[in-house]
């Protein structure tokens, strides 16, 4: 491999990893004050504080929320993406723009009237949270699946149909496996929308759903909690990562 390529790749690796390094060090630091280059005392105080703050149940809640959002936003996005990749949707451009519109809503705008409306309509808190987060995830799943369908070669399915497969069978046995990487990516992004949200979970959820981001945000709002924040942060990176690996393995096997 050319030296240039190798250097370039090393730079990319540093770019991705460097910001995480202080976090990893802090997670194992009991004491680390300036200008020390490394923590002066290593320990598990951060882990203990994180567990005390309820990180266990909170990450469970976050996981469930992420999975529910992914389970709703992925198929909806895939269906919309498929339709929009073709030319069948009337005013397709406008429909795509509409499906991307949740992106333009800043999350805090929820607190400027939408939350009142949901309360007026007596929408249960958990339903409201899932609805809003699914809507927030749909632009991602739609764009990803639309791109995947646009690049997808329908020839394979047609071949399967010519060979006598039913339409359903062609989708299940040919189309979905070929799109598995895109589907996994879409599901993953949707999962993350639920997994990492703060404003909607707190304000629309009415505090009933104390998820990991709520713990991170409140711990991060004061000095002296760096180790705890680092542990909570790494704790909020690992489960999605495990999910990604699992999805990746699953996709490969098919």
């Amino acid at each position: 491999m050319a030296l240039g390529t190798r250097l370039g790749r090393a730079a990319l690796a540093v770019w991705l990893l460097l910001p995480l390094v202080p976090l990893v060090l802090w997670a194992a630091a009991d004491r680390w004050t300036a200008p020390a280059v490394l923590p002066q005392a290593w320990g598990t105080a951060g882990l203990r504080d994180a567990v005390d703050s309820g990180a266990g149940t909170a990450s469970l809640r976050s996981t469930v929320l992420g999975l529910v959002v992914a389970a709703l936003a992925t198929p909806l996005g895939a269906m919309a993406g498929r339709a929009l990749a073709g030319s069948g949707v009337p005013a397709g451009g406008a429909v795509l723009a509409a499906l991307l519109s949740p992106l333009v809503l800043p999350p805090f705008a929820v607190a400027l009237g939408l939350d009142v409306l949901l309360l007026r309509l007596r929408v249960p808190a958990s339903v409201g949270v899932v609805l809003l987060l699914t809507v927030a995830a749909l632009p991602y799943t739609t764009v990803l699946m639309r791109t995947a369908y646009a690049a997808h070669d329908p020839g394979f399915e047609e071949e399967a149909r010519t060979l006598g497969a039913t339409a359903r069978r062609a989708v299940l046995a040919v189309q979905l496996p070929m799109l598995a990487p895109a589907l996994a990516g879409a599901a993953f992004l949707a999962f993350l929308v639920g997994w990492s949200d703060y404003v909607v979970t707190l304000l629309v959820g009415g505090g009933q759903l104390v998820t990991l981001p709520l713990l991170v945000a409140s711990a991060a709002s004061s000095v002296g909690n760096e180790a705890q924040v680092a542990v909570l942060s790494l704790g909020s990176v690992l489960p999605p990562l495990a999910l990604l690996v699992a999805v990746g393995l699953l996709g490969r096997r098919r």
């Binding site: 995480l20 981001p213 945000a217 924040v229």
Partner: peptide, 12 residues
């Protein structure tokens, strides 16, 4: 490594 970065919430 890129996959590692994606799940990091922006707050973190």
């Amino acid at each position: 490594l890129a996959a590692l970065t994606i799940p990091v919430p922006h707050l973190v």
